[in-house]
Design a protein around this nucleic acid. Structure first.
Lengths: 184, 184
DNA sequence: GTCTATACACCGATAGAC
DNA sequence: GTCTATCGGTGTATAGAC
């Protein structure tokens, strides 16, 4: 059933996120899901690539429903941004989870998933820019700060992973809303 | 000779940087260097791990000599930071090169190279914090902004790769010196 | 110092039983 | 829908000739 497949995809997420497309071997996938190779091919007709696409779609869906959703609300801009920060802290487990968009833009995954990765990043930036425009910033400044926000979050994920310490990520998220809205 | 080995390592750099530790297969390495598998094992006694360590050491050395060196100069802080930005733009090829510190903090590479990655990031932050302290910032603020600088650079690399557009990286570098020094 | 040849484990993928 | 068994290919690594 569809619900079972969704549960399998959920188990695939950490494997692809941590190891990247090439590093996510069928052995690791099999271990993570508890399913044999053949069972996996029963569910995902196009093999490993199908699994990776399912993971990417699933995470895009989650990201839209949990992180972008508050940005589309009718709350005050500052409240929307604070809500996004809170959700991001959960979504990335205090910065300890990698971002699939970052992982899939390396190696073989880059060629396979570039379109989806690019689209996901653009959508995120656009949602942020819209909130900042509502808050009264000029189109150009809103756009630039929206990009800065994504940059800081992605960079904080790298630093948090590299230093093995969640402080940078949580600090960036905490400071982000005010930083984005303060007058130029 | 040592100079030949250095030349081999130079050819290994893009392979490990783009594909990560696991994705850097001996086929790709062999192709990039023009050497057969056995020749590679003649030069690097501990196999692929030895190659990766050589790449990491080599890049750390380059990074210290080209990016950190201007930070240690006796120029004005703003000039030191501008010099770093210029050098970074070359070093990362306008944001089109991945950072090995980011690549090696994923998958199997994470366990193998965590200590070196952590040390390299710390050294970078400390050099920046020292410049900002000289510029008159408080210890805490200097430290925080130094971290922010590394975060923005790493994040800009991710965005530039994901969007396939060098604008974010070059903009971040261009704005960085003033941003770091402006009064709180 | 480079090569060919080779060892053996693991890769992604499939066939066919149940 | 899951399994075992297996395919051809590729992975890292090594032996030994030149």
């Amino acid at each position: 059933m569809a619900i079972d497949k969704r549960e399998i995809v959920r188990k695939l997420v950490p494997v692809f996120r941590h190891y990247g497309y090439e590093g996510a071997t069928l052995s690791r996938i099999s271990k993570a899901t508890g399913l044999g190779r053949a069972s996996l091919y029963h569910h995902f007709s196009r093999g490993k690539q199908g699994m990776a696409e399912a993971v990417l779609s699933y995470l895009n869906e989650c990201f839209d429903a949990t992180i972008l959703e508050p940005l589309r609300s009718s709350e005050e801009p500052i409240e929307r941004l604070k809500a996004m920060s809170d959700r991001l802290n959960q979504f990335y487990n205090h910065g300890q989870n990698s971002c699939i968009l970052s992982t899939f833009s390396l190696g073989e995954g880059r060629d396979l998933f570039h379109a989806q990765v690019q689209q996901a990043l653009k959508t995120w930036v656009e949602h942020l820019a819209e909130v900042l425009t509502v808050a009264g910033l000029s189109k150009n400044l809103a756009r630039q700060r929206a990009e800065d926000a994504v940059i800081e979050i992605q960079g904080a994920l790298v630093l948090t992973r590299g230093l093995n310490c969640t402080d940078p990520f949580e600090r960036v998220l905490q400071q982000l809303p005010d930083k984005l809205l303060k007058s130029a």
